[in-house]
Design a protein around this nucleic acid. Structure first.
Length: 558
RNA sequence: AGCCCCGUGGUGUAGUGGUCUAGCAUAAGAGACUCUGGAUCUCUUGGCGCCAGUUCGAAUCUGGCCGGGGCUGCCA
């Protein structure tokens, strides 16, 4: 499918590597750190890595980068596994952990020490920082930099054996303290850290830093193309240096620009802060761009994959409009979601000329996009609910829904005419209407047409539901980049809870993962908070609303 | 200030010296159709950061400039 269309710069590089024989296969990996939940930015990386492997008939590993036990936990491992799987990808038997390679990494470190390419440093963290110099000034050599190999070997061994306190010593690469690339100024390879690791327990008290470990992990697994984000570009020379010094297999690292989305935040720190600060209900709050949040919101995995495909991949930093994600969700759901009727803001309608105790069952197609989805029977009776917005006592221009004296169609039911609005204290509380019995099913025998078709729910059959409506979490496009506390830009209306919604009975039977359309309203799904009779429904995304746009324009022109 | 990266319609991407009167998607605007003011269909608006150079020919190659971003954790 990608053959006739164009490729991105990463696939160009891979094609080139395959043609020139640098590699004869493609093996990628997705390497999350188990210290948080995955979000849409990770989805981009996941789709890239697994997608490329699939396209080239290669493999993609899922590998946890668990080199820092002080922040990492087993629960994150489980949630990440779940999320990647939910997105639709499979790593077969290739689930790995950086911690699986701790012994090997230590071996490698000993080799570097033996070659005089690494040394144990007694400087404190603070001193190391000072000795590093600045962006414009070269650093200074540590007084311990020229320790003899034997001494280093001995000290490293004793670090490992736990003879020293946390932070007392580190192992450093011996490269160049004047290097213009700060990452090459003798980076730390091992730190002493007494923390229980989620997999290795208390077996180690020294842990490899990311810079030391990451390239080794890719090398050990025989990764051909290590795809990562832009901020690691300056680290690539270091990874290559380590691998070259060791004389081991070298993957090619390719960096791409991470995803930014408007009206949300993507950094782990900010997401965590929202969760812990109680601004959202948890990591799976439907307003969050986390995989779990989007899942609970009702975003289909196929839509997320489609989105990741459409945004492409490049090295230029960009921000994608949230509208594109929503477009992808609508696009997918339009094709796949069955239609139901639900009234969010109920307005009672009494059909004066309809027999009091009569109930008819109307045949309704489940999906106009998919005839194979079949039909269902929806009860219709003398008292109904329609949407409050679908009636106006004094209809504005271009509004062609219900108004006194006006005729509209009730979807798959009858044409009705509004005779009178019943008011209490100036507010419309109910409508008295009449049906044209000759229009059962929704078609008029005389061929007359009506402009509007409304959704409805039979009052005696209606099921009560709580509906949660969501809007963007922030009021500004780039809440993280405003120079102030990003929480100042939280949208106070990001969650609106409607408690007296009336939905057709069939909705009660829907399992919590199913997604559906409420006709003319948008896409929704049942929230897992649903318990017993208390039905809770999440709004996934609104339908495109032309009338809303028209009325907005009219308001502006006035 | 040193090192590294990036610069194509509003947004995101394709384009690898002629076939570029610069493609696609999205957004916006207009219309058609419709038992969802949904979907679908048609049309319209809108772009190669700048300046030199190489060349018969440059979005594409070279140089300079301008603009944006990253790098000074024992985080990843």
């Amino acid at each position: 499918m990608n053959d006739e269309s164009s490729t991105d710069f990463i696939r160009d590089i891979i094609n080139h590597d395959l043609e020139t024989g640098r590699y004869d296969r493609v093996h990628t990996r997705f390497p999350p750190e188990p210290n948080g939940f995955l979000h849409i930015g990770h989805a981009k990386s996941i789709c890239l890595n697994f997608g490329i492997a699939e396209e080239y008939g290669g493999k993609c590993n899922l590998r946890f980068d668990d080199t820092n036990p002080s922040t990492e936990e087993e629960t994150y491992v489980q949630s990440i596994i779940e999320d990647v799987r939910w997105l639709g990808f499979d790593w077969e038997d290739r689930l790995f952990f950086a911690s699986d390679y701790f012994d090997q990494m230590y071996e490698y470190a000993v080799q570097l020490v033996e070659k005089g390419r690494a040394y144990v440093d007694d400087l404190s963290a603070e001193e190391i920082r000072r000795y590093r110099g600045t962006l414009t000034q070269p650093g200074t050599n540590s007084p311990y930099r020229d320790r003899p190999v034997e001494g280093n070997l001995d000290l490293l061994e004793r670090m490992k054996e736990g003879e020293f306190g946390d932070g007392e010593k580190v192992l450093r690469a011996r490269i160049d303290m004047a290097h213009p690339n700060m990452n090459m100024r003798d980076p730390v390879m091992y730190r002493i850290l007494r923390a229980t690791h989620h997999r290795t327990g208390d077996r180690w008290c020294i842990y490899p830093t990311y810079d030391w470990a990451h390239g080794l992990e890719d090398s050990i697994e025989g990764i051909t193309h290590s795809i990562c984000t832009l901020e690691f570009e300056n680290h690539r020379p270091l990874y290559d240096w380590f691998l070259d010094q060791l004389g081991v297999y070298r993957p090619r690292q390719i960096e791409f620009a991470r995803l930014n989305l408007t009206y949300t935040v993507m950094s782990k720190r900010m997401l965590r802060s929202l969760v812990e600060g109680g601004q959202v209900s948890g990591w799976d709050d439907p307003r969050l761009p986390t995989i779990r949040g989007m899942r609970r919101r009702g975003y289909p995995p196929a839509a997320i994959r489609d989105f990741c495909q459409r945004i492409g991949v490049s090295k230029s930093e960009s921000t994608i409009p949230m509208e594109l994600l929503e477009h992808c969700v609508r696009d997918e759901l339009n094709r796949t979601a069955p239609r139901y009727m639900g009234v969010l803001h109920p307005l009672k309608v009494i059909l004066d000329n309809y027999p009091r105790d009569q109930v008819e069952y109307m045949g309704v197609e489940n999906s106009p996009e998919d005839p194979a989805a079949g039909t269902r029977q929806v009860p219709f009776s003398r008292v109904l609910y329609i949407e409050r917005e679908d009636f106006r006592e004094h209809p504005p221009k271009k509004y062609y829904r219900l108004a006194p004296g006006r005729e509209v169609r009730l979807k798959n039911a009858y044409l009705i005419t509004c005779q009178e609005a019943i008011k209490e204290d100036g507010e419309v509380t109910a409508l008295r209407c009449t049906v044209d019995p000759a229009t059962r099913g929704g078609d008029a025998p005389d061929g007359r047409s009506v402009r509007a078709t409304l959704h409805w729910v039979s009052a005696p059959h209606a099921v009560d539901a709580e509906v949660r409506l969501y809007q963007r979490l922030f009021t500004v496009e780039d809440p993280a980049g405003q120079g102030r506390d990003f929480k100042e830009h939280l949208n106070p209306h990001s969650l609106r809870t409607l408690t007296s919604c009336k939905v057709e009975p069939a909705v009660r039977e829907l399992a919590s993962v199913e997604r559906f359309q409420f006709l003319r309203q948008g896409y929704f799904c049942v929230d897992p908070d649903t318990a017993g009779d208390h039905l809770i429904i999440n709004q996934t995304v609104e339908l495109r609303d032309t009338w809303a746009r028209i009325s907005r324009q009219m308001a502006k022109n006035r």
